[in-house]
Design a protein around this nucleic acid. Structure first.
Lengths: 154, 154
DNA sequence: TGACAAAGTTAGTTGCGACTAACTATACTG
DNA sequence: CAGTATAGTTAGTCGCAACTAACTTTGTCA
């Protein structure tokens, strides 16, 4: 109990995991420089974070080489990415927020919400998606509702 | 520009503002001890935070006395409380999460979301609330949808 | 192959936000 | 009103997560 398997990650380390995962996915490998660019931090900050991720058994990183995630690291990264995608989809597809605003908000909120809420949110997105098939498009109806209310406030 | 009026508050200071506001509302005054208990920190941490809030012109605090919020401090606190309430209501009333889980999640997420998203969320809650009056209760329907999907996964 | 640019690391600093321990002020109570 | 419990403050420490500056390694190319 209380070992490295159960420790909660900081928002910062979750961001690093997410960036490493996405870079590996997109470019085929995560270089320290690219992680720094993605997250808007210096290379030395990345070195420090990789050190921590290695200590926690989440990333492997031979100096001057590519960063790879361990099985546990990849699992943790997938969970962060999943939260991100669900939140971004909810903001954009249900609430009707601009894609890039939704993305940025998802980045912030993904660290704050547990799996109970995220699971329900995913469910809700699906509910809204199929709502059109039963004669009433919830997302569209809400957009109308929202724009009318906004107009009233001008 | 860049003066004290426009600076963004840390999540921690927002928590202090919120606690002070709620205590003043509930008990009629915010004592350092009570702020500490509410937030689960030590009294000395509160002293430090009050120092910062005073420097930022958000709280007045004569040593050994009650803490009061300035106009700007109260405005900032109201905004945090508003975000909290909207999020908690969304989690509980729309997603159907337990009240206390919703409260805790709102505490975490309230610092991460800007007014664009929060405004839409409020709008959405209203939309769901009036949805029942037009023959179809979105929240209730979703609960059914979610519970059926959950059962399928067992 | 030698030089240089780019990438990565190390060492040391900063700010924040918590903590403990020790001290001071206030308030209550016999 | 003296003594003590409670509240508040101060000083000093710690961990985290960033930073800069200086150094090392790697890779490229004339």
């Amino acid at each position: 109990m209380g070992n490295e398997r159960t420790q909660k990650l900081s928002a910062s380390l979750e961001d690093y995991l997410e960036a490493i995962f996405n870079l590996a996915d997109d470019v085929g490998g995560a270089r320290s420089k690219d992680i720094a660019t993605t997250l808007g931090v210096t290379r030395s900050s990345v070195t420090g974070a990789l050190q921590l991720l290695r200590e926690k058994g989440l990333a492997d990183h031979e100096p001057y080489g590519c960063v790879t995630l361990t099985q546990r690291g990849e699992a943790a990264a997938r969970e962060v990415v999943r939260k991100h995608d669900i939140l971004a989809s909810f903001f954009a597809d249900v609430l009707g927020v601009e894609r890039d605003v939704a993305q940025r908000a998802a980045c912030q909120a993904e660290h704050a919400l547990g799996s109970e809420i995220i699971g329900r949110l995913l469910s809700f997105i699906d509910y809204v998606a199929v709502s059109g098939q039963s004669g009433r498009d919830v997302a569209g109806e809400f957009r109308l509702f929202h724009s009318r209310r906004s107009v009233r406030r001008i």
